[in-house]
């Protein structure tokens, strides 16, 4: 299995350094680091992943994110995180990872059979 997993290390966000280290064929020397950009579209909402970009430091990453991802007032706040600092769950463990939630329908309000006459609950 390991030999296949190696191919899966290309980071979506994060683990990129590890990925390029594992394959050994890529050179990122001289490239500005990769940053992930999260944007809050308006006050009251969460920051949401918008994409990624290269920048020499955090300040430049924020300025570039402003130019690349908010040209049409898409945001009121920007987070940037260097991609190598993000850790992601393994898609191959998804089955076992999320399986425990499968048989617990009683966590949903619709599981309970209550009389129709009952209001406001």
């Amino acid at each position: 299995m390991n030999q296949f997993i190696n191919k899966n290390l290309y980071g979506d966000y994060g683990d990129k350094e590890q990925a390029t280290g594992a394959s050994g064929t890529h050179s990122t020397a001289g490239e500005w680091p990769l940053w992930e950009v999260f944007i809050r579209s308006k006050a009251g909402l969460d920051h949401k992943h918008a994409g990624s970009l290269h920048a020499a430091d955090a300040q430049m990453a924020i300025e570039n994110a402003r130019d690349v991802y908010t040209r049409r007032m898409e945001g009121v706040s920007i987070w940037v995180v260097e991609s190598k600092n993000i850790h992601a769950s393994d898609p191959y463990e998804a089955a076992s990872m999320y399986e425990p939630a499968n048989d617990k329908v009683y966590r949903h309000p619709t599981f309970y059979n209550l009389p129709d006459e009952l209001k406001h609950m």
Binding site: G11, S23, H26, S27, G30, E31
Partner: peptide, 10 residues
């Protein structure tokens, strides 16, 4: 494209 494992410089 970079998420597929090619670098920008490449």
């Amino acid at each position: 494209a970079e998420t597929l494992g090619i670098t920008r410089d490449e």
